[in-house]
Design a binder for these strands. Structure first.
Lengths: 107, 107
DNA sequence: CTCGATTTGTTCTATAAAGTAAAACTAATC
DNA sequence: GATTAGTTTTACTTTATAGAACAAATCGAG
């Protein structure tokens, strides 16, 4: 039962969300919007690589596309282990927050 | 809008949960149970210190108590900034997960 | 009583892992 | 050649973690 970091969590979720369009720059765009701040390319590619290396993501390279700058992309998909990791952190989150009154009602 | 790590999040939540009993070893115990693994003392005290330094936690020292080994404790309480940080990450979590079908139903 | 053993607690030290920015590189079309 | 979309590499800071060291309280045997 491995516990992934928050960055890893949102990256896995972005891959899931983007589905057939889950490649580096698109993921960067999606997660930057989620977090409300522009992430550097390294802040995305390096954790993605780590997640793939640990078996949470699978990768494949596409063919280039016929648009300006449309070179080959590296696409990601979630593995079963990646799903398991997400389930684990979701449960932790629910337990940690579930024991408390809703914070937004109080402050 | 500062984004805290997962460890920082669960530590802040533990402080909130434990209320008048939020000191180092009790927090360690609580968070270890939450995560399902024994945390080392350093894995708790060092982030706690960092959170205090950044203004998310306030600290005070208690008097020793008359039980075996009952030396003075360092107690923590959440500050308004700590609350804000929790609200921020809760919103991010809800946005990130809200866009997706419930994972536990699918896998 | 008193002094070592035990217990609860915090601080310090050292290292591994994660996060991040930015430059460099690649390959496509215009 | 200039521009664009994309990935890889480099270098550095911050976080996470384990574990030893230290501190101070009570307990209990003699």
């Amino acid at each position: 039962m491995e516990i992934i970091s928050r960055m890893e969590e949102v990256l896995l979720l972005a891959v899931w969300k983007l589905q057939q369009d889950a490649y580096g720059l698109a993921i960067r765009q999606h997660v930057s919007e989620l977090l409300g701040k522009e992430l550097s390319v390294g802040a995305v590619y390096i954790p993605l690589e780590r997640l793939a290396k640990r078996g949470f993501l699978q990768t494949r390279e596409s063919e280039p596309t016929a648009i300006r700058g449309g070179r080959r992309k590296r696409f990601y998909t979630l593995t079963q282990e990646g799903m398991n990791a997400l389930v684990t952190v979701k449960k932790i989150h629910e337990t940690a927050w579930g024991e408390l009154p809703d914070i937004s009602l109080e402050y």
